[in-house]
Design a protein around this nucleic acid. Structure first.
Lengths: 194, 194
DNA sequence: GATATGCATTAACTTTTGTTAATTAGTCAG
DNA sequence: CTGACTAATTAACAAAAGTTAATGCATATC
């Protein structure tokens, strides 16, 4: 499969201590799947315990509050997604995961990965690393909601994910930023006038 | 020391798998210290790698952006504080930790705790548990900044920490919520009128 | 006691955001 | 091609938040 080569390369550059056998070991428990735009990979209330790795495409994580759709996160190529809070607390998930642009995704059962880690310390290191990266990112996001204006948050998001406005409706970007779609539209208008 | 009794009780109720020897083991590497209001336990840029446990009092975590003080977190009795992102990424901290009301604090060197965990699996479990709790809390906070109005965030904070307005200046609560002190004052005024 | 300092509130005004609705453009199904 | 649907923008107005400054209050300092 031609998708595995770039994945191997990526993993080995990010985690140089991994051997080819380590990667094969993980792969043997993972599934590569393709999903069309709009597909739901996980729904609120489900107890399936999965981690995903985006090989191609864009995935959106969101939740509903009072019937309103709030975007929690975007995940693109070579990023890991999963509702870690529900995996760690072992409770049903509160967030949906859906495919925003057609995706090729590597899916792995979190508990099977957990089992692998008892045999292989390097895979355990990766599991811990995923948790740590998520914690660090969450902390940074809290800091940003506290100290940045919506416009600044938008510019920051654009810098990190320049292609995003072409990949998802702006209304989903708006809720990610904590504002309404109308307000984001005005922010974009203001920015243009420079 | 009479502060250790309630601490032991708390730890054993939260982590029932701990033996008295486990707790003593951690204690032997920890220091109980008292600090007056206003004391700084950690400063931006420092590389000291510490975790703290509040035995009594209230601690505030904050950061500076463009010279402005933004409150990142409050920690009260029986809560753990520490700049986990800098501990995990092994970089100097970006956040200050200061004493808001006179405190009795148990301080432990994170790396010494780390060393303990190689000899004692139950202590490792606690270390991991601390990280997981922090991740879960951070995720919930991101969700709240996205989907709740400042007034709702204030009411939620009050429900969680009812004593807070008597313990810290309101301006610090305001920045925690992501608004100005003037705005929080108006929110409080609005709430009174019920 | 007089003065200085810091904090919360209030006021006055500006800016931004929320809300609702209308408009426009694009996509899809028949 | 037409009608239905969705998304983005724009308009108009209301509500909320930011900004600056003034006031009152408590506390600390001399």
């Amino acid at each position: 499969m031609e998708f595995i080569r770039p994945l191997r390369d990526f993993l080995k550059s990010k985690y140089p201590f991994l051997s080819d056998e380590d990667i094969s070991m993980v792969m043997s428990f993972a599934e590569i799947r393709e999903y069309p735009q709009g597909e739901q990979l996980l729904r609120e209330g489900e107890t399936r315990r999965i981690l995903g790795f985006v090989l191609e495409g864009l995935v959106r994580v969101y939740f509903l509050r009072d019937g309103v759709d709030y975007t929690f996160d975007f995940r693109e190529q070579f990023e890991i997604f999963g509702n870690l809070d529900s995996l760690l607390a072992n409770v049903p998930t509160t967030r949906f995961i859906e495919v925003s642009t057609p995706c090729r995704v590597l899916m792995i059962d979190y508990d099977e990965l957990q089992t692998l880690t008892t045999y292989n310390d390097r895979i355990e290191t990766i599991r811990v690393h995923i948790l740590q990266e998520n914690l660090i990112q969450s902390i940074q996001r809290v800091e940003q909601y506290i100290s940045l204006k919506p416009e600044e948050r938008y510019l920051k998001l654009l810098a990190e994910r320049p292609a995003l406005p072409n990949q998802v409706p702006l209304k989903h970007i708006a809720t990610y930023l904590g504002v309404t779609a109308v307000s984001l539209s005005r922010i974009r208008n203001r920015i243009k006038s420079d």
